[in-house]
Design a binder for these strands. Structure first.
Lengths: 190, 190
DNA sequence: CGGTAGCTATACCGGTATGTATACTGAGCG
DNA sequence: CGCTCAGTATACATACCGGTATAGCTACCG
């Protein structure tokens, strides 16, 4: 379906490349990491990298996709641990905090990637917008589940708090940003 | 005082370079713009660029500084137009909306710059953190002025809303993000 | 009058970027 | 047996990066 769809499971070398690329791209920024370094760090030749992924752009998209998958899995795990619908909403903010503290505090990989890609029509921007739309959809679901009227506008507020917490935690060096967002969300839910 | 202090007013060519660099850096990202392009676009030789600014890093810092100055001036103008302390707080959110709509919708230049610089100790990161701290300080002032108790924690919430609105407007393509943040702030102020 | 500041013009340096070409090895498999 | 696929190894093409060097021009200013 999608042009970049990659059904087949990655080969061992491909996996190593993607893991290394994900770590380096996130930690240093996309433009600051060359394909040669990725290949070397993965213990692989450049040819293998290009055989598996075709281009740097495709590798970047694979990076964004897999990191987002990890995040969603982590989030779902946290959501499953909470029973009360209201608690499930609040749990998302606790999840950001823990995620940022353990998975690198350089903020949102999507936002960072967009910063390096000028063209708003580029797949990177579309991927990022999709991810935010997905997250907003999740908040709509949770708000509906919790029985709030106008779950859409509640979701708008929650996602603004969500993204603001990520930025203030990383760029603003505000260690309690996710707590602040959580407390504010708690207030909105009353 | 500061290592990058530049007391002397810029020469005409220097001004042109800075203006061009600011536009290009913001629109395309720092790493995507070379010094050669900046020089050409400003109608200046590379030598002039390096005579005025010394290095790309210094030019980047000058860009961040001047863009922030423009933003602060714009914000102060909007604040001066509101009388009621509570309205002054809300006016900051209207200001972001108008700023983003007229000054490029690629989000926060500071956040974007940080995305391209790995080292958290780099001047770019310090500049960004300072800017967020300044903004938080402004919210503390406004909250104090409006007579709220615990203006510090109110400011925390307001700045999280603020930054979240910027991200959701640009990356999330949520045109009403600043309105959502404003309405949420309004709710917090009651 | 002489020096300095601001500027143009051009050429160059070493390094690094994405991506390609060629030739080879080894394992799985119909 | 022979084909395909994953992978290694090395070399290369082409382009651009930040930054420097050299030389000369103009205008102001003590």
């Amino acid at each position: 379906m999608s042009a970049t769809a990659r059904e087949r499971p990655l080969t061992p070398a491909g996996r190593r490349v993607l893991d290394v690329a994900a770590a380096l791209f996130y930690e240093r920024g996309i433009g600051q990491v060359g394909m040669e370094l990725i290949a070397a760090e993965a213990g692989v030749t450049k040819k293998t990298v290009y055989d598996r992924f075709g281009s740097k752009e495709a590798l970047i998209l694979a990076y964004l996709r897999t990191r987002d998958e990890r995040w969603r899995a982590f989030l779902n795990e946290r959501l499953a641990a909470a029973d009360d619908p209201r608690d499930r909403i609040l749990a998302t903010f606790d999840a950001i905090g823990e995620w940022l503290r353990t998975n690198g505090s350089r903020g949102c990989s999507m936002v960072n990637a967009c910063a390096e890609v000028p063209d708003p029509g580029h797949p990177v921007h579309l991927t990022a917008a999709e991810q935010k739309a997905w997250l907003r959809g999740l908040y709509v679901e949770l708000a509906t589940e919790a029985g709030y009227d106008d779950p859409a506008s509640l979701a708008d507020r929650l996602i603004v708090l969500h993204e603001g917490a990520v930025v203030m935690f990383s760029v603003g060096r505000m260690a309690h940003a996710t707590d602040t967002a959580r407390d504010t969300a708690d207030l909105l839910l009353r």
